[in-house]
Structure formats: structure tokens, C-alpha cells
């Protein structure tokens, strides 16, 4: 690895963020994380980074239920950015939803690697990191 992998956590639940960050630290200390609380914030940042050729994440952990712009909103914009993203980004959807519709819908987005259930354990994070 050239640089430390960057994981974006897009979620409005602070507690989840706290837990996940802790687990990431525990799993691999060199991993950087960036946190966004809604889809809009994160999408704007992504667009800006692309335009300015800034640092893009290697992994995105996306929550579905967020205010202002939820995960679906993010995904629908993300697809449009696809060509511009020269970097391979592994996108994971994390949710505590058990709605099969959500699962199905998530899988229809080609960019979604996988569907992850909360909470994200250390093992799950290792798994995500190793798949890079």
C-alpha cells in the first residue's frame, strides 16, 4: 500500500461512528477515517475532491437512513460520478435495516460491494480492509 487506506464513514449516528472508529483503530492502526453526517455533506466533499484531484477514499461505509440526503440519494449521485473517479473505491452499505427491499435495492447498485449489518465488529472491518 502506498498510503494508509482512507475510510469514509457516512452516518448520522454518533455512537455508531464512535464504535466503528474504535474498531477500525483496533483492527488496523494506520487506517485514516473521515466522517460525514449526511449524504449531502459527503457528496459535496467528494465532488470537490474529484475536481481538485484531492484525496479520495478507498472505502466508503454508507448508512442508508440519514437526514437531508440519505444513502440512496448519495448512491444515485455517486453513479453519475463514476467515470470521473479514477480510483477504485469499495463501497459498503451499512444499516440496521432488515427491510428486504433495502437489501435488494442496494444490491442493484453495481458499485455496492456488499451489504454490512451494524454493528461492525473488528472482524468485519478486517474483512473490509483485506478485500481492498
Amino acid at each position: 500500500m502506498e498510503h494508509s487506506p482512507l475510510i469514509w464513514i457516512i452516518d448520522d449516528d454518533d455512537l455508531f461512528i464512535m464504535i466503528t472508529r474504535n474498531n477500525i483503530r483496533k483492527a488496523a492502526t494506520l487506517v485514516e477515517t473521515e466522517v460525514f453526517h449526511d449524504g449531502l455533506e459527503s457528496m459535496d466533499c467528494l465532488k470537490e475532491r474529484i475536481a481538485s484531484e484531492g484525496i479520495l477514499p478507498d472505502i466508503i461505509l454508507l448508512d442508508l437512513n440519514m437526514p437531508i440526503a440519505d444513502g440512496w440519494n448519495f448512491l444515485s449521485h455517486y453513479i453519475q460520478l463514476e467515470e470521473k473517479v479514477r480510483k477504485k473505491i469499495n463501497l459498503f452499505v451499512c444499516t440496521s435495516s432488515i427491510d428486504p427491499k433495502d437489501i435488494q435495492r442496494a444490491k442493484e447498485f453495481g458499485d455496492v460491494i456488499d451489504f454490512k449489518e451494524k454493528p461492525l465488529s473488528k472482524e468485519a472491518i478486517l474483512d473490509i480492509l483485506q478485500n481492498q
Binding site: 455508531f16 466503528t20 432488515i98 451494524k118
Partner: peptide, 10 residues
Amino acid sequence: RSHASNISGI
């Protein structure tokens, strides 16, 4: 589940 998962995670 959110709350529950948080509790579990913590």
C-alpha cells in the same frame, strides 16, 4: 436495531 446494535457494539 440501531440502538440495540450500538449497545451491542459498545
